[in-house]
Every structure is written in structure tokens, then in C-alpha cells.
Design a protein around this nucleic acid. Structure first.
Length: 725
DNA sequence: CGGCGGGATGAATACTCTTC
DNA sequence: GAAGAGTATTCATCCCGCCG
């Protein structure tokens, strides 16, 4: 479309350029004729051309204005470079020199003149060029066709080859899978063989060491580097557990080795024993962590035991986990002895979480994650005393558990609401040994009231004269009496000759049923005590007064009642609580006890018979028959029967209140689902393990006052959880 | 009541051996 | 060669029970 050699007409752009030669149509037409190389400016052709030029220029200007009003360079260029048709109008053909590029819009006519080649030359050269081009294109086309054919053949052969390869690939893929399976199997076998190899290698090393030791006659407790062997470390822990002082452990090992005729390379120094003792805390914790982790993984349920105590001004919090044993009964793992600033439920709860977190950190693999949450989710019941902070603490555990269970339990959302409710089920049990301890106050209160009625004197609540007698005998004749009362030695000497066991346990050592136990023993040895006081008491006021009191019929009656309670109620109850296979067994003996109490209330004489309300347990009580015989050797007075009626009324109220969950109308009185029975299998009837752990801590306080709490905890856990066994 | 022995602690320091 | 683990030694201090 440019005005090049091959152009054969005026473009609109060139037509518009004609206007630059002058203002009139005549001048434009003349210029047009000049460019075309026509000299004839007359006649019909001139007039036709003039009209054409005038019309076409006017059209072009209108068009250009329109384009500029709505600018579009493409339109403009297209318009300006299109032919106006003048050559055809004049009946000529022409060739024009190019105009400058159109995009400048300043449409300038070139300064030099346009040379127009002759018509015949232009036509011939163009044809030649075009002919050459056509020939070239034809040749290229032929070559392309040939290439295309050969490509087609090539593609066909490649397609066949690809098919072959696909089949081969399928076959090899199968083979590959087979080989992979085989490699996996071999790899497994390799792991086993490697493990066995390592084991045998270690065994070989040990055997070689033993052989070398046998040859040299020296047993090595440490390796080449001087590091003590795991067996030695365990022995050190065991010796510490037996109460051997750090400084003496080495000496003990040497002594034992000498005894069996073995020489050893060296023994751990006191500082090493100290280090081992401290590190034993980690061992003890790992033991608990693994045992609990395994139980949780196996879907076992946990009973959380908790209690707090005061020891020499320090407050301690302690926890335990009860786990169901296969043959009934429960195992208890003690953990988390912590010194606390206060006894609030929140502190206890925080301490529990912190202790569980620290246990979780020691576990293996999955146990590390959310150990605390998993532990509390597995906790289905609690065992504690009835202190208000404990009740609050139990409630906090239940709340936390309810918040954690949906997160921990797999597929919680898919469970029915009944299943969810069953999973959320939570039970609180209370220590039955505390029940026995608190019974003391109930009985003492009644005896005080009875004494008031009989004597008409003022008797303080909870302190009948018989209670003073019991305390006095324990003080003067007890196991821990200071030996400054000559008659205690007399009594001991006499009892050694005549009786198997009639010692008086110290009142301070305070077992739960100590008052009843002491009363039974005092009653049975009353005559002898009075006799010894008369013989050797001399003028000691306290002894004389005690003998006087012992002779009083009222004291004798009260001692008899207390003794009978020991034999028929507290003793059997104690043994029941300690030997419960399942906590729900409480139902049967609670109802037996209550019906017996009810019966005795109506017929007090039956209290003084040989029948315990829990008969199945009488057989467990050693020496019961002998003691009972002595208690019943004295005839029952009217006054005793009156006291018994009062006592039975009070005891009925007391036991009904305590066993409210287990008697008619209580939570566990009716039919209990199997699921609940399973979930409470881990619960204990008492909190004795925790109390005994506190006893252990108390003994440590006396024995080693400077011991730090972590070491106390380590000793406690190793001892109570049997870590070294 | 005071002296003494036993048991435990923390802190400072040293030595040997292995690992990086 | 430095750092660290394991072991050992020493000293001052504390608290309890026993004994005179």
C-alpha cells in the first residue's frame, strides 16, 4: 500500500498533498497532471480529472476530519494509504516515488522528483520477480511435501516403537513392584538380624569381661573410662533405699564383696552416691511415666488419689494413681510430692498439672504429647478425704476432664450423646479409714453424755473420763514411754512372760483406730495393771489416780464398749476397707452394718454377743476370739445397755450419712451398669497409700532433716512404687 | 543443757577421658 | 586445644538423737 515501485495509483494521502501547491482546484489538477507526466490540459479528460480531483479531495478532507474527531491511527493510516482510483479514471498506469512514513502525520511530499519508469520495463521486471518467486515457492513446497512424507513415515515407526516401550514399561513396573516388596522384606529381616547381632555383640562383650574378671579375680564395677556400670548404679539406689547413708554405701559394697570372696576394682565415693541418688529421681519418674503411659495407651482407667499434710511447718501435696489389677484389687503409683505455699484447691490442681507435665516430658514417643490431658481423660474417679478443699479439687478435676475429653477422644463428634455422657461419667469416693477415725469422736461424745447422765457431773464434750484413762495408760505404759516410770518396765517384763502381744501402742503414733484398740487391751489387762500399780506405784500421784479410775465400774463399762466396737466394728471395717476387691463391695457391708446397728438399737444385749456385722471378716482378725472372750467375761450391766442404745442411735445416724451413696436411695445402691463397674475397678476403698507415703516423708524428716525435696521424692517413689524391683 | 557423732547439703575445685 | 561429662575431694554448715 505504500507508494513504492509496485504502486500504480494515487493514494488519498498523495491526493491531499496536492493542495499544498495552491488554493485552487485548477492548480491541484495541473500538479496532478504534472506528476502523471501528462501535458494535455484541455479537453474532456482535463474536465473529468478536475471534477474528480475536486470531489475526491473534499471527500478525503471530510473523512479525515471525522477520523480526527474520533481518533484511531489504524483507520487514519488505512484511509490515507488507500488508492483514490485516479489512474483508472484517467485510463493510465503509473509508478510513484514513496512518501515518507505515514505515522508522522505531517504528510510531506518528497523534495526530489518522482522518477516514473517506462510502462514496459516495470511490467517485465515485476513478472520476472514474481515468476522467480513462484518457482522458488514451488520448489520449497515440493521439498516440504517430501519432508512431510518422510516425517510421516518416521512418526509411524516412532509410534510403533512407543507402543513397544509402553508394553515393556508395564512389564518392568510389575517387576519393580515385586522387587520393592522383596527389598522391604529383606530390610525388615536385616533390622532383626542387626538387632540380634548388636545384642549378641553386647552379650559377647559382657561374657569377655566376665571371663577376664574370672581370670584376674577382680570384678569391675566401672568400665575403662571409670563410669560405673548400670548394675552398680542400681545397687547404689537399692542401698540408698534401704537407708544406707551416702558415705557408707561404698563401705557396704566392699563388706559384702569381702563376705562372698570377690575383689572389686573400685567403689563409688560419697559424692558419686549423692549424684546417683539425685539422678534416681529421673529413674523413678520414668518408671511412673512408663507405667501410667502404658496403662493409658491400653485404655485402662485411673483413680486419682490426693491428700495434703503438714510436716514441721511445711505443707506438702501428694498424688497417686490407682490402676486396676488383673486379679481384682488395685495397684497404686505414688507421684508428685510437692511443697506448697497454701492448701487451696487451685494450688493443688496447678501442682498436679505441673507434676504430670514433668512426667510427660520423660515418656516415650506418643506419651510426650498431651500427657496431662490424656492422664486426666483416663481418670474416672478420685479418692480423697472429705476436706472442703479436696471436694473443690475433685470438682476442678471433673470440669477440666469434661473440657479435655472432646479434644482427646477420637471420633467424639460421631459418638451419640449417650456415649458421650457415659465417657464423661466421673465418680468421687472417700477414704473409709477416715470414717473409722471420725467414728472415735462420735463414740466419745456419746460416752461423755452417758457419763453426765450417770454421774451427774459436768463432763466436757468429746472428753469422757475413759478417754483420759486410755491416754494415760498409753503414756505411762506405752511402747514409747520414757522408761522413767518403773512400773512400765515391770508391766513389760510381766507381759513378755505371760502374753504374746498385749503392749500398748503409743497414742502419738496415732493409727486411725488407736483409741478402740487401746481400750480393748486395757480392758483385758485391767486387773494386772491395777495390781502392778499397787505393788510398785508407790506414792506417785498419777499412778494412784489411774488405778482408782480403773477400778470405777463406769470406766470399766466404757472400756468394754470401746473394746467391743474395736472387735466388732472398727477392726472388721478396717480390714474390709483394706481388702476391698472393688469399691462397690462397700454396698453389701454398709447395709449389713446398718441393719446390725438397727438391730442392736432395739435389742442392746445383742451388741454383747460374738457376732460382727461383717461376719465374713471375723476370720481375718488374728486373736479376735481370745480378746472377745476376755471382753465378754464380765457381765453386762444395765448402765452399759443404756449407753449402748445411745451409741447405736448415734452410730446409725453417722453411718447413714457416710454411706449415703451405697445404701438404699444412694447413687450406687440399685443396679449399677457393667460399664460403671469397669470404670470404678481402679478405685480404692481408702487413701492409706498416700497416708503411708506421708508417714514415710515424716520419718525422712526426722531421720535426715536436711534432705532436699527432690531427693525425698526420689526416695519415696522408689520405695513406694518398687522402682528397683 | 551442752558436746559429740551421724547424716545430709551446697559450693569450690581438681582430675581423667571423650568429643568436637 | 576447648568444652563437657563423670568422678572425687574438701570444707563449712545444719539438724537430730544420744549421752553424761
Amino acid at each position: 500500500m505504500s507508494d513504492g515501485v509496485e504502486d500504480a495509483d494515487f493514494t488519498v494521502r498523495r491526493l491531499l498533498e496536492l493542495k499544498k501547491v495552491g488554493p485552487t482546484v485548477k492548480e491541484w489538477t495541473l500538479e496532478c497532471f504534472r506528476v502523471c507526466g501528462i501535458n494535455d490540459c484541455k479537453g474532456a479528460r482535463w474536465i473529468r480529472c478536475r471534477r474528480f480531483v475536486e470531489r475526491e479531495i473534499a471527500k478525503a478532507e471530510t473523512k479525515l476530519r471525522n477520523i480526527r474527531r474520533r481518533p484511531s491511527q489504524t483507520d487514519e493510516l488505512y484511509y490515507l494509504n488507500s488508492y483514490c482510483g485516479l489512474a483508472a479514471h484517467l485510463g493510465i498506469s503509473l509508478s510513484l516515488t514513496p512518501l515518507p512514513p505515514p505515522f508522522l502525520i505531517t504528510l510531506l511530499i518528497p523534495a526530489h522528483s518522482v522518477s516514473i519508469p517506462s510502462k514496459s520495463t516495470v511490467s517485465c521486471e515485476t513478472c520476472q520477480i514474481k515468476s522467480r518467486k513462484i518457482k522458488n515457492i514451488s520448489r520449497r513446497l515440493k521439498r516440504a511435501q517430501t519432508n512431510l512424507r518422510s516425517h510421516k513415515l518416521c512418526l509411524i515407526s516412532q509410534s510403533k516403537s512407543a507402543n513397544r516401550l509402553a508394553r515393556s514399561n508395564k512389564r518392568l513396573s510389575k517387576e519393580n513392584h515385586r522387587l520393592r516388596d522383596r527389598v522391604a522384606r529383606l530390610s525388615e529381616r536385616y533390622t532383626v538380624v542387626e538387632r540380634n547381632f548388636r545384642f549378641l555383640e553386647n552379650a559377647n562383650e559382657v561374657a569377655q569381661e566376665n571371663l577376664a574378671e574370672a581370670h584376674s579375680g577382680i570384678v569391675n564395677l566401672s568400665d575403662d573410662r571409670g563410669v560405673f556400670s548400670p548394675d552398680t548404679v542400681r545397687t547404689v539406689m537399692e542401698l540408698s533405699d534401704y537407708g544406707v547413708a551416702d558415705e557408707r554405701v561404698g563401705g557396704v559394697i566392699e563388706s559384702v564383696c569381702r563376705l562372698v570372696g570377690v575383689q572389686i576394682d573400685k567403689v563409688p565415693s560419697p559424692s558419686t552416691v549423692r549424684n546417683i541418688s539425685l539422678s534416681s529421681l529421673t529413674v523413678a519418674k520414668m518408671h511412673v511415666s512408663e507405667r501410667l503411659g502404658d496403662a493409658i495407651d491400653a485404655g485402662e482407667y485411673i483413680c486419682l488419689l490426693s491428700d495434703e499434710t503438714n510436716k514441721k511447718g511445711n505443707k506438702y501435696q501428694l498424688f497417686g494413681a490407682g490402676l486396676a489389677k488383673g486379679d481384682g484389687g488395685q495397684d497404686v503409683m505414688v507421684f508428685g510430692l510437692t511443697q506448697v505455699a497454701d492448701k487451696t484447691a487451685k494450688t493443688a490442681f496447678d501442682v498436679l498439672r505441673e507434676r504430670l507435665d514433668s512426667l510427660g516430658g520423660l515418656g516415650r514417643g506418643s506419651e510426650i504429647d498431651q500427657f496431662t490431658d490424656r492422664f486426666l481423660a483416663a481418670t474416672t474417679c478420685t479418692m480423697s478425704d472429705r476436706a472442703s478443699t479436696q471436694l473443690k479439687f475433685n470438682a476442678m478435676i471433673a470440669d477440666y476432664r469434661a473440657s479435655v475429653l472432646p479434644k482427646i477422644t477420637a471420633g467424639w463428634d460421631k459418638m451419640t450423646s449417650e456415649e458421650q455422657e457415659r465417657t464423661l461419667e466421673f465418680h468421687e469416693f472417700y477414704c473409709q479409714l477416715h470414717t473409722i477415725a471420725n467414728l472415735t469422736n462420735v463414740v466419745l461424745e456419746i460416752l461423755a453424755e452417758h457419763e453426765r447422765i450417770v454421774t451427774g457431773k459436768e463432763v466436757p464434750d468429746l472428753s469422757p473420763t475413759v478417754f483420759a484413762v486410755v491416754k494415760e495408760v498409753a503414756r505411762l505404759f506405752g511402747d514409747r514411754s520414757a522408761g522413767m516410770h518403773g512400773c512400765a518396765l515391770e508391766f513389760k517384763a510381766w507381759s513378755k512372760q505371760n502374753l504374746s502381744d498385749c503392749s500398748f501402742p503409743s497414742f502419738l503414733g496415732h493409727r486411725f483406730n488407736v483409741v478402740f484398740l487401746l481400750a480393748a487391751r486395757i480392758f483385758s489387762q485391767k486387773q494386772k495393771l491395777v495390781q502392778i500399780i499397787d505393788e510398785c506405784g508407790g506414792s506417785k500421784v498419777e499412778l494412784v489416780k489411774l488405778a482408782e479410775l480403773l477400778r470405777l465400774p463406769l470406766i470399766s463399762e466404757h472400756l468394754q464398749i470401746l473394746g467391743m466396737i474395736d472387735q466388732l466394728v472398727t477392726g472388721p471395717l478396717w480390714r474390709v476397707a483394706e481388702n476391698l476387691k472393688h469399691v462397690l463391695e462397700t454396698r453389701s457391708h454398709a447395709s449389713l452394718l446398718l441393719s446390725w446397728v438397727g438391730h442392736c438399737k432395739g435389742d442392746p444385749i445383742s451388741f454383747f454377743s460374738r457376732v460382727s456385722p461383717v461376719p465374713s471378716l471375723q476370720t481375718i482378725a488374728a486373736g479376735t476370739e481370745e480378746m472377745l472372750g476376755k471382753l465378754l467375761s464380765v457381765a453386762t450391766s444395765e448402765s452399759s445397755l443404756e449407753a449402748t442404745v445411745l451409741l447405736m442411735e448415734a452410730m446409725e445416724r453417722y453411718f447413714k450419712c457416710l454411706f449415703v451413696d451405697f445404701i438404699d436411695g444412694g447413687k450406687y445402691s440399685g443396679e449399677v451398669s457393667e460399664d460403671t463397674v469397669e470404670r470404678t475397678q481402679c478405685a480404692l476403698g481408702h487413701n492409706r497409700h498416700i497416708e503411708s507415703a506421708f508417714g514415710f516423708v515424716d520419718r525422712l524428716h526426722t531421720h535426715s532433716p536436711n534432705m532436699i525435696v527432690p531427693r525425698r521424692l526420689a526416695k519415696l517413689m522408689i520405695s513406694k512404687n518398687h522402682t528397683t524391683r
